[in-house]
């Protein structure tokens, strides 16, 4: 009953055989061994599993893998360029102390990317809204908000 899905993953075409009940998160983590995407709740409530699907954030833990067919998926592994250079959002997270235990970080960074791709100069309110679906227990969010402000030149 396996089906083959084809999609663009971090800029490269991939083809994977999947059982139809699998989530995108399971395919990414278990089949493709991209463990940068985290599972925090498995119910689409915490945002740790956030990936970008055609540039928009999705909670991959409740997103059916089959629906990724023909689309473009970006995970945290795709954010650094081929030479291992960090994306400006990643640099800002490091520089502003936006990371503690780090478990929410990959999802948080990708939510920030989706936000800034759409809105290069978000207000603080828009930043807070943009990452409201990503829970963080360590930081109290403030240094994350500062980091995103800094990337957008504010």
């Amino acid at each position: 009953m396996k089906q083959t899905i084809n999609f663009i993953l971090n800029g490269e075409p991939v083809s994977v055989e999947v059982e139809p009940h699998l989530t995108l998160l399971q395919v990414l983590r278990d089949k493709l061994e991209l463990t940068g995407t985290k599972e925090g709740c498995g119910m689409g409530e915490c945002g740790a599993c956030t990936v970008l699907l055609n540039g928009k954030t999705v909670n991959s833990c409740i997103f059916p893998a089959l629906e990724a067919d023909g689309k473009s998926v970006m995970t945290i592994e795709g954010l650094t360029d081929g030479q291992g250079h960090l994306h400006p959002i990643q640099k800002a997270f490091i520089e502003y102390g936006a990371i503690q235990c780090g478990f929410c970080t990959p999802g948080m960074v990708l939510s920030a990317k989706a936000l800034l791709d759409e809105n290069t100069k978000p207000t603080e309110e828009e930043i807070r809204h943009g990452i409201a679906g990503n829970l963080c227990r360590c930081t109290g969010y403030l240094q994350i908000i500062e980091a995103i402000k800094a990337v957008s030149g504010q």
Binding site: L34, T35, G36, I76, T80, L86, Q90, I94, E95, G102
Partner: peptide, 21 residues
């Protein structure tokens, strides 16, 4: 000094290995 965490690069790139990984 406001020195960034030593493990920050690993965490921000998704390379850090947690038990589920």
């Amino acid at each position: 000094k406001r020195i960034p965490k030593m493990d920050a690069e690993e965490k921000v790139t998704g390379k850090a290995v947690y038990i589920p990984d």
